[in-house]
């Protein structure tokens, strides 16, 4: 892992059904009082340039494919941070009919930040911790842990065409064929 992207990681934030509480606290981290930019962190909207994925919310069924899509588009090495109680486990939304109980049921999570809402100081702590993890990773490919349908590799990339899965694969249940090549 090159030193440079640890010194200046780019951050992508996605709201996967959160109540906005944690989103706004992430925004507060970027603002003057907490100022996460002093770690060289830049907020980007583009997954292809991002190193850190911050996810809030319990993953609603509509947001599910989008989360996986964003994760797959990010280049390796990458880290994923689940911000807030509901991103970690589903929190207060756990078991509601339209949520999937936490980020880690779809993509591997490196750092969990608890709290409802997570305090900006906790978020900074988590991001700094994730930088250590990022430094230890190499360019090996990482995969979503579960999808509606198998993960297939096409010419060295995760094939995104089947991400949302067909109805047939939905009925067969979820398959986890993570590192198959």
């Amino acid at each position: 892992m090159s030193r440079h992207s640890v010194r200046s990681p780019w951050l992508l934030h996605f709201n996967a059904g959160s109540c906005n509480g944690c989103d706004v606290e992430i925004l507060a981290c970027l603002a003057p009082k907490y100022d996460i930019e002093r770690f060289g962190i830049v907020n980007t909207g583009n997954p292809i340039q991002a190193d850190i994925l911050l996810i809030t919310g319990p993953i609603t069924k509509r947001a599910r494919e989008r989360v996986v899509e964003l994760y797959v588009q990010m280049p390796e090495p990458k880290v994923v941070i689940a911000v807030g109680a509901c991103a970690c486990t589903g929190g207060v939304f756990r078991g509601m009919y339209n949520v999937e109980n936490g980020v880690d049921s779809f993509i591997p999570v490196d750092v969990y930040i608890p709290g409802c809402s997570a305090h900006p100081e906790q978020i900074i702590d988590g991001v700094v911790k994730s930088l250590g993890i990022l430094a230890g990773k190499n360019k090996e490919m990482e995969f979503p842990t579960q999808l509606r349908g198998p993960v297939t590799i096409d010419r060295g990339q995760v094939d995104r065409r089947g991400l949302a899965g067909s109805v047939a694969s939905l009925e067969k249940g979820c398959t986890n064929r993570g590192t198959e090549n």
């Binding site: 059904g17 319990p58 509509r62 989008r66 078991g95 509601m96």
Partner: peptide, 11 residues
Amino acid sequence: IGFVHRGIELA
């Protein structure tokens, strides 16, 4: 607008 629908009313 439906991306963050969670089903709070039913719960």
